[in-house]
């Protein structure tokens, strides 16, 4: 009689462990996904912050009548392109992140060129408003680097646990995909050279 009970209890326990590991895997993935989504919105925040600086910067620079029109137009166009993308953080794909990176990279380059051209205008360089914007822009670029690193770290943590057994089995059943990474941009840190 006593052994019968024990067998029954063991079966019940095993059943619970089975259900538990499914539910646990599912909840685990949901929990791991949250930091990735949060990190992504931080990435978008800092990029938005940079985009918000651009109109001010353009207006300040515009005041110097002889400033190259083409450089300014390039910045404005690149900004429009960079802010046009709408990305759903929970359904991030490698293609999307690549397109996002390319658009933002376009703005980085246009801004980099603007700063190089600005070097040619001593009056502009002495302008306090411009100096302030320059410092803010530099700070924002640093923030972008940091938030991208943090995003990649969160994505890595999620991807690692997604690939582990037994979670790996349920991940594909419940449709939890891999999170894509930001790739280091080649020559991203190199400021474009302008020869006069």
């Amino acid at each position: 009689m006593k052994t019968g009970w024990i067998v029954l209890i063991v079966i019940v326990v095993l059943g619970f462990i089975g259900v538990g590991s499914i539910v646990g895997s599912y909840n685990g993935l949901v929990n791991q996904q949250e930091p990735v989504t949060a990190a992504w919105s931080q990435v978008e925040n800092v990029y938005q912050r940079r985009a918000d600086l651009v109109p001010n910067l353009v207006n300040t620079v515009k005041g110097y009548a002889d400033f190259e029109k083409a450089t300014l137009t390039a910045v404005i166009e690149a900004r429009a392109k960079a802010t046009s993308m709408n990305i759903d953080a929970s359904k991030l794909t490698p293609d999307q992140i690549q397109a996002f990176q390319a658009n933002q990279g376009g703005l980085s380059q246009a801004l980099g060129k603007l700063m190089v051209v600005a070097e040619q205008y001593p009056n502009l360089k002495a302008n306090e408003g411009f100096l302030n914007l320059q410092a803010q822009l530099e700070g924002t670029e640093n923030r972008i680097t940091v938030e991208r690193q943090k995003y990649n770290l969160a994505a890595q943590t999620y991807n690692t646990s997604r690939r582990q057994f037994p979670t790996s089995i349920f991940a594909s059943i419940f449709g939890f995909g891999e999170k894509p990474y930001f790739k280091a941009e080649e020559g991203a840190k190199i400021v474009p050279k302008v020869i006069f």
Partner: peptide, 18 residues
Amino acid sequence: MSWYWILIIVVLWFLLFL
């Protein structure tokens, strides 16, 4: 912990008690 893990632990403890 979620309820099912707690339940498992309680059942296991009961088993040990026997």
